[in-house]
């Protein structure tokens, strides 16, 4: 056991059954502070289900989630979020009839107006949307909408930010920008990244977890993952 307790979140035998199908199977997962962790696996491996269990969108059938030292397994979603978990959706989920400013403002709670405004401008500056601050967010381009989501996740100032396939549908240039931003995030928060783009995973993740049929089949740095025969089999099997 580590004497230094620097783990931010861990799960104990976390499981989820959907009508007899085990989507997540007794997963023991651990993520440390200020880490960038990638969660990968073939389609249907249970990645989205797993992170949904972490933030409470889905109730676990069995098992526990510990966050920042306390058991959050029985907390409702909004309390988990307030305790410091941020989550961005796989599909774009912004409030399209509200302005960019209002979108970000909604993700900041319990702060004074002045402080709030400075956070909004800071994060919008970081993702490069400052010049579009009063635009209706539904009118933004797809790439900009994804950046807005990222800004919203950032403005929440979570301890753990879960990003569900943030680079899906983006151009190469936009992806490069994304990688830089996520690197930058990890200075102040822990990032858990679900990602299909292996280039992104290999270049920014500190550690990689591979999920297959709801189980962790491998975990480690990029070299050990790339050379793990189990992982190769999982991905090749997926292609057959």
């Amino acid at each position: 056991m580590d004497i230094l307790n620097d783990e931010l979140l861990y799960t104990e035998n976390l499981s989820k059954n959907f009508q007899g199908i085990t989507a997540v199977d007794k997963v023991n997962f651990k993520i440390n502070k200020n880490e960038i962790r990638a969660l990968i696996g073939p389609n249907g491996a249970g990645k989205t289900t797993f992170v949904s269990l972490l933030c409470g969108r889905i109730r676990a059938s069995k098992g526990k989630v510990f966050f920042n030292g306390s058991d959050i397994s029985n907390l409702p979603v909004y309390k988990r979020i307030s305790s410091g978990i941020g989550y961005t959706f796989q599909i774009t989920a912004i409030f399209s009839n509200l302005t960019v400013y209002e979108n970000v403002a909604l993700s900041i709670k319990n702060r004074r107006d002045k402080e709030k405004r400075s956070i909004i401008f800071e994060v919008l500056n970081k993702v490069g949307l400052l010049d579009r601050v009063s635009q209706r967010s539904g009118d933004l381009s797809y790439g900009h909408q994804r950046l807005l989501e990222l800004a919203m996740g950032m403005a929440q100032r979570p301890k753990l930010l879960i990003l569900d396939e943030p680079t899906q549908g983006l151009s190469d240039l936009e992806i490069e920008n994304f990688k830089k931003l996520i690197k930058d995030f990890s200075k102040t928060m822990t990032v858990l990244l679900i990602e299909h783009n292996m280039d992104v995973v290999m270049s920014i993740a500190d550690k990689i977890t591979v999920l297959h049929f709801g189980k962790i089949i491998s975990e480690g740095d990029k070299h050990s993952i790339q050379s793990d025969p189990l992982v190769q089999k999982a991905y090749l099997g997926d292609q057959c």
Binding site: C55, V77, I81, S82, F89, A93, N97, L98, S107
Partner: peptide
């Protein structure tokens, strides 16, 4: 309004 526009997202903002 956020709940009207996208209640799932509002929930995930806490």
């Amino acid at each position: 309004v956020a709940i009207r526009e996208n209640s799932d997202r509002a929930l995930m903002l806490g």
